[in-house]
Structures are given as C-alpha cells and as structure tokens.
C-alpha cells in the first residue's frame, strides 16, 4: 500500500514541478509587452550608445580644421596589434627651426581590437573613441582610415 502511495505521490509531485515550469513560460507568453528584443534597423534613430562605448578611434577637429595630434607616435607604440601608423613630416617654421608635425595618422579599423590603450596613453588627448558601431563595408580597404583631415593643422598651445 505504501509503495502505491509513494508511486502516486511521485507522479503528482512530478506533474506539479512541470506545472511550475509552465507557469513561468505561460507568464511571459501572456505578457507580450515584456518582450525584450528590439527591431534593430528600424530603431536605428532611437538607439543611443553609452558615452564610453568604444566604437572606433577618431581624431576630433575643431571648426578651424585643427587637431591636437603632435605626431609623437606613442599611440603607435602602445597599440598591441599594430593598427596605427604615424607618418610624420618636417616643416620649416618662420623662425627657421625645423618642426616635426603629423602628416598622416593611419588607422586600420580592421586590425583594431578597441582596447583603448592608444586613447589612454595619448599625451595630448588628440584621439578619442567614437560611439559608432556599424562598421561593415564592402571592401576591406575602406577600413583603413586617415584620421587627420586633409589640410588640418595642430592647435595652438599643444606641447610636444
């Protein structure tokens, strides 16, 4: 008799645990407003990334097309992947001194792992992380970018 009782209670307990699980899924089924997924390309306008989100390395320019990069090359050294190349040029200042300035700050987004070491180590805060995240392109060469704009100069008062 006891065996039968145990058998029956096992069956009922088993069914009870199954109903518990079904209560959880049923709870969410009948509450469609709790849906967490988003319709991504449609909500693109509303998407706001966190301000510290590491999307890609950029070099901000002011309205006079000036940046803060001195071409010191620390970002190039600190990059673990070799995704930054600094090409410098030498200009003759009016007072006759030679000065090394940045010619091209080449950034290979395809090789970058967004570790933030270059931004952190930059002595003049010339590069920052942008919040863009749609990086897909048709051609790999488009991932190689020149960060300083053509014709841009270094801002006044940035120390070497």
């Amino acid at each position: 008799m006891r065996a039968i009782w145990k058998y029956l209670s096992d069956v009922l307990k088993g069914i009870w645990t199954l109903i518990q699980g079904m209560r959880v899924t049923g709870h969410y089924f009948f509450r469609p407003w709790l849906i967490v997924t988003q319709q991504y390309p449609e909500n693109r306008r509303k998407l706001v990334m966190f301000e510290r989100f590491r999307g890609e390395v950029t070099m901000p320019h002011n309205e006079n097309n000036e940046h803060k990069c001195t071409g010191c090359g620390i970002c190039e050294i600190s990059c673990p992947n070799g995704s930054i190349e600094i090409i410098t040029a030498t200009v003759l200042l009016p007072d006759g001194k030679k000065k090394r300035i940045i010619d091209k700050h080449i950034y290979h987004l395809g090789m970058c792992s967004l570790c933030n070491l270059c931004v952190k180590n930059c002595p003049s805060d010339a590069i920052v992380m942008a919040q863009t995240f749609e990086h897909a392109v048709w051609d790999r060469t488009q991932l190689t970018k020149v960060l300083n704009r053509p014709g841009s100069k270094i801002m006044e008062g940035i120390k070497e």
Binding site: Y28, F29, V36, T37, Q39
Partner: peptide, 9 residues
Amino acid sequence: VCAFFQQRL
C-alpha cells in the same frame, strides 16, 4: 508561439 514564450518577437 515559441518566440512569445521566450520574450522575443
């Protein structure tokens, strides 16, 4: 149905 059980669309 499975999507709604799983809080998806």
